[in-house]
Design a protein around this nucleic acid. Sequence first.
DNA 1: ATGGCTTCGTTTCGAAGA
Length: 266
Amino acid sequence: MRIATWNVNSLKVRLPQVLDWLLEQEKAETPIDALCLQELKMPDDKYPLAELESAGFHSVFTGQKTYNGVAILARNATMATPADVVRNIPGYDDPQQRVVAATYGDVRLVCAYFPNGQAPDSDKFTYKLGWLQAMTAWLQAEMAKYPKLALLGDFNIAPEDRDVHDPKKWEGQNLVSPPERDAFKALQALGLADAFRLFEQPEKSFSWWDYRMFAFRRNAGLRIDHILLSPALRDVCHACVIDRVPRTWEQPSDHTPVVATLATGA
DNA sequence: ATGGCTTCGTTTCGAAGA
């Protein structure tokens, strides 16, 4: 099973790229079985269900106008009907649509768009830390229920200095600050492993580059999009890569996909 | 250098992203 995450920064704008990318994976015989999307930026009635269905993918999603919105696309040919669909963090009252989860066979996929946080001294940062705490508590219960669990998404946290193009310049700032990194470690302490770091990787591997200042050309990026795996899935993970190609396309998202390959037997 | 770029809303620029 190949699973992926991609913050598309507007599904309306990026739908053709999502379809192109999925089709290319099919042609390369490395089909994506499940793709988690973040920042749909559209209400549910604008979700391109039919187009994705024609491309061979069914969806679970939760959207909102202008901001946020998440979806899990699953390949009809290989993926079971989603069960136990959950939208948002149960018991955590939040109008922002940032989480959707579903079970495919015995694999639980959690797609999340973590709050940005804006700046460590802002109200949005306080919201980010509270959200992270609620997410961590809920995931602990989810992992007890579903041993084969993957958490995919835009975490808006660069876990270590090697995930930052210029650690000195970024020190203490939003996305890299100690409280955020501690929250990431709390997720790891649940037993969730950073799939990307299970393997040897090129130096300066990033998943996001600012649109400004030719950041992609200079590889001035951050690794903030992640796939975290429960022990049962970590043990069967064969590869995890960042696919930089969509970031090279015309009118790209500022994020690029992260892909993990699992030997689930399905 | 609080800029730089992109998206959305309903604008004729502001907010937000990261």
